[in-house]
Design a protein around this nucleic acid. Sequence first.
DNA 1: GTCCAGGGAATCA
DNA 2: TGATTCCATGGA
Length: 314
Amino acid sequence: MLKQNLDLKQNLYTEFEIKGLKDFRLEHIFENGQCFRWNALNDEKTEYVGIVSDGVYILKEEKIYNSDNNLSENSANNLLNEEYIDLKVITNKKEAEAKQILNEYFDLEFDYGKIKSEYIKLNESLKEAVYFAKGLRVLKQPKLEMIISYIISANNNIKRIKKIIEELAAKYGEKIVLKNKVYYAFPTLEKLKTITLQDFIDLKVGFRAKRLFETIKVLSYEYIESLDELSDEKLSEELLKLSGVGPKVANCIMLFGYNRLESFPIDVWVKRVMQEVFFDNMEVSNLQINKVAEKLPKKGLAQQYLFYWIRVGG
DNA sequence: GTCCAGGGAATCA
DNA sequence: TGATTCCATGGA
């Protein structure tokens, strides 16, 4: 009897809508390399399931409409800021808490209209990228998860990174049930500290095993949170002390975990698109790329539009 | 400065 | 199909 109640309780879920979202498209947000725990549920990529700390969320784009409340086609020709979207949410969390978490996670208070209008005046290619990825947002993701995930990401591809993180969560994370399906939260730091070097090798993280093991040993939640007080420069300095964290990884952690919109991670794709847009396809150093990037306001955000544009539009 | 480390996806022949 | 290339970091 007791067990049955427990199962029933685990299968409780909440369903609600968030209405009138601007600058918001699930595909643009989830398919640009900033997160690893969201998976599309349909080919149109209008419905996703994902995990945020200890919550599972099924998100579905319900209705897209313009300011006159007319239904709108998903067309690249639509003017910026014209579209609104209603999002259906199914979650194991209570409605009020879920709303608060999603509001923070998607940074819904941040106004993309202003920065987008700056970008489209700045450069033709950037304008094209912004129109192409108009529903893109930079997520505010859990910091520990970002540190570990981006160490795993070093010299790796997104598909495999996702697979490794899924396995890590399945082995060491808390179980979460939603609609009779089982999901796993990203492991807590306490749990991560129980993972041996051999365990990491068994997870097939390759040469990153030692880096992960070493870094987890020195981390604490207090330390991770305290870094939030630092300037961009100091934060970067601290992150670079961690084993497995170089300039690219540090910038990813800063941009996606600490919401530092001036961080500019340069991977092979960003290098490619920057060379194409600003250097007439000439081979240049990261130093030169950074110099050009300095001229872009909130350059981490600009980097995201360009990355999505070159990878998906390309 | 140059080389290499696992692993698997992507791209090539 | 099988071979080759790609990928970000750190240690030798």
